[in-house]
């Protein structure tokens, strides 16, 4: 990542306020289709409105309900649980795999792997949802594999079991994101000076110490990027859940994105949907902004 605004130069191209004409189209589109709806979301969240008839001012009632209604609140908790699968697993697994294959990063296998591991990033999440609902069904491949290795007792309809549905959705997300994280981290590792490793080996460091004293610290920025991207994906998840479980069974996989959609377009509680939307936006910011500070401090 380049470090912009490193130091202001004294001689700048003089365009003055007229230069805003260049920014105008972007600003107009952004203001019309993002900032305006965003401020309307805040406004709607203070009303009780069914989207058709007249609305009624309710102040902060919708937010109060958000904190007291266990169903609404649990959707937020589910989103945080998904972080485990969308972020933690891909990042840890990615680190492990990248560190292990660092030595063969230039081989032909690794070139092929680069293409293959990217496939989940290229397809629509909807398609990932369809594929995996099928794999995780009671007669799907996952259960077949389990039976084949003698774990037949564990087989179940993974997306239909109250205990496993959310983790199963998490696995789909992990599948989508693990390749991206691995490749990002691998790219970061290729920038580490090989001399560092050679020196460590001469000192008699094993792979484990090598990993903790060289690899991990040098990857601070890449790890920060992985975590940021995946945390946003977890908190704002919609496509996969919409296709794989629709929030069921028994609300076990209800996430804020889907709940907003249901509230706004099926239950027609526009105010409540907007309050949840505001909460979601704030949550994402609250999780992501501190991460930036962390990685920035590390990289300077």
């Amino acid at each position: 990542m380049p470090a912009p605004i490193a130091g202001r130069r004294t001689r700048r191209p003089r365009a003055g306020w007229l230069g805003w004409l260049f920014a105008a189209p972007a600003v107009i589109m952004y203001a019309t289709f993002v900032l305006r709806p965003l401020s309307l979301t805040v406004q709607y969240s203070l009303y009780d409105w069914n989207g058709i008839g007249p609305s009624r001012w309710v102040g902060l009632d919708n937010y109060r309900r958000l904190l007291t209604d266990s169903e609404l609140f649990s959707s937020i908790l589910h989103a945080f649980e998904l972080i485990l699968f969308f972020s933690l697993i891909p990042v840890l697994l990615g680190l492990f795999v990248a560190a292990t294959i660092r030595g063969i990063a230039q081989s032909r296998l690794a070139t092929v792997a680069r293409t293959v591991l990217f496939l989940p990033q290229v397809i629509p999440l909807v398609a990932a949802g369809i594929m995996w609902s099928w794999l995780l069904s009671s007669t799907g491949v996952v259960n077949e594999v389990l039976s084949a290795v003698g774990l037949g007792g564990l087989t179940r309809a993974w997306l239909g079991d109250l205990g496993t549905a959310l983790p199963a959705v998490g696995v789909i997300g992990a599948w989508v994101l693990v390749g991206l994280c691995t490749l990002l981290l691998l790219a970061g590792m290729s920038k580490i000076d090989p001399g560092l490793y050679e020196a460590a080996r001469l000192d008699g460091a094993g792979p484990v110490r090598e990993f903790f004293s060289i690899t991990l610290p040098s990857l601070r920025q890449e790890i920060g990027v992985c975590v940021t991207v995946t945390v946003i994906a977890a908190l704002a998840s919609f496509d996969i859940v919409y296709i794989a479980t629709q929030g069921g069974p028994g609300n076990a996989t209800m996430v804020p994105g889907l709940e907003i959609y249901y509230l706004a377009f099926s239950e027609r509680e526009i105010g409540m949907a907007s309050a949840l939307a505001v909460a979601l936006v704030v949550l994402v910011l609250a999780c992501v902004l501190p991460l930036q500070r962390l990685t920035r401090d590390g990289s300077r």
């Binding site: 965003l38 907003i260 959609y261 979601l280």
Partner: peptide, 18 residues
Amino acid sequence: LLGLTLPFEGIITPLYYQ
């Protein structure tokens, strides 16, 4: 820059009416 983190679900409801 702040818009980078915005989940689309955050604005979908008013966007529909707009």
